[in-house]
Amino acid sequence: MVVTGTIIYLVCLNYYSTEGRFFQAESLVAPRANNIMCNESDLKHFPNGSVDFRGFNNYTGYSSGCYVVPDIVHYIKFNQDEFSFIEMICIASILINHKPSRLMIHTNTFQLHGKYWTAIKRLPNFDRVNVVYLEKPTSIFGHSLDSGFGVWHASDIARLRLIQTYGGIFCDSDVFVVQSLHPYRRFEFALEWNYHMYLGNQVLFGHKDARVIPHWLETYKQYNGSLWYYNGGELPTQAVLYYKPELFHRVRDKFGTDLQMLNYLYNTTDWAWQEYQAIHLFINHQKYIFNESSVLIYPDSPIKQMILSVMQDYMYPSLEKTGELP
């Protein structure tokens, strides 16, 4: 049975589905579109073909300004086959404000459905969305992910492995993308790490051969399932980032990963949210339930402005009542 399970897992890693159709994952390489990926001649390689980033400048990137990270956005959805309103809004922000070459929704369910999935399929650039089956990690280095915060920690591990497999950009399910994220694709690996905080893993950019990923994953040998952010942020900051700052590009206060976002988003009226590249909405840290009806009566605030900036006309209650939205 172990052999059978392994075969199924490997098959799932190498194939993705869109509306029930399966294709080999090699076809997921993002097209160059209007951006310029670095040429192979720009990169140094090891004999095994992986990129040799030794000596790479993660402060400036290549002088030509070419992109190292492919324009693929990764989104993880484990153990859920329906989307919330906020998840739909955040996916809309990716497709409308960044317009990636690919948005890969990685899930361990076989059929996505529901009102907000219907809305997502009507979004601009939905033809760039691929639904990809991904087995949820259940253990790491012999440590089970079945207790404590393990369900959420599985996503922390999967996002690193996805970048290691494909390269690209990872966005948490409640990250609202405000502007194009292309500037951070110039670096081997990029993340937000503010002065007074541990790293934020809600928005990540990386080449599949980024050197920091193996070091980060190695810290899971000291896995602690009872602490929310120990392995996701605290330990890798202390054990890796402090000692190997040359392995990544440090972003400060551009991805909204600070808890102070709660006050700015929900309790102010004139905060300049448009100046950020992306903002973590901390949706599970506030009590209001947002949907296409409730947001219209929510007090004027940045969160309301952000939602309405990407909420399509067909999501308004008046249109829902006419039967246009199932």
Rank of each mutant, 00 (worst) to 15 (best):
M1W: 09
M1L: 14
G5P: 02
V11K: 07
N14M: 13
T18M: 13
T18S: 13
R21H: 15
A25P: 06
R32P: 12
E40A: 15
E40D: 15
G49M: 11
G49Y: 08
V51P: 02
N58L: 05
Y59H: 08
C66N: 08
Y67G: 06
Y67H: 11
H74P: 09
H74L: 14
I76H: 01
K77W: 02
Q80P: 01
Q80N: 05
E82T: 12
E82I: 06
I94E: 04
P100T: 11
R102H: 15
I105W: 04
N108A: 00
Y116Q: 08
R122A: 13
R122W: 07
R128Q: 13
N130M: 14
N130E: 15
G148V: 01
S155T: 12
L162M: 12
L162W: 09
Q164K: 13
Q164Y: 09
G167S: 12
I169L: 05
V175R: 10
V175C: 10
L181M: 09
H182M: 15
H182W: 13
E188N: 11
W193Y: 04
M197C: 06
F205W: 04
H207G: 03
D209N: 07
R211S: 14
I213P: 05
P214V: 04
H215T: 11
L217W: 01
L217I: 13
T219F: 10
Y220A: 08
K221E: 09
N224V: 15
L227T: 01
G233R: 03
P236E: 00
V240A: 02
Y243E: 12
P245I: 11
P245S: 10
L247D: 09
D258V: 01
Y264F: 15
A272N: 15
I279H: 00
Q286D: 02
N291D: 14
S293A: 14
Q305H: 13
S309E: 01
M315N: 03
G323F: 06
L325Y: 11
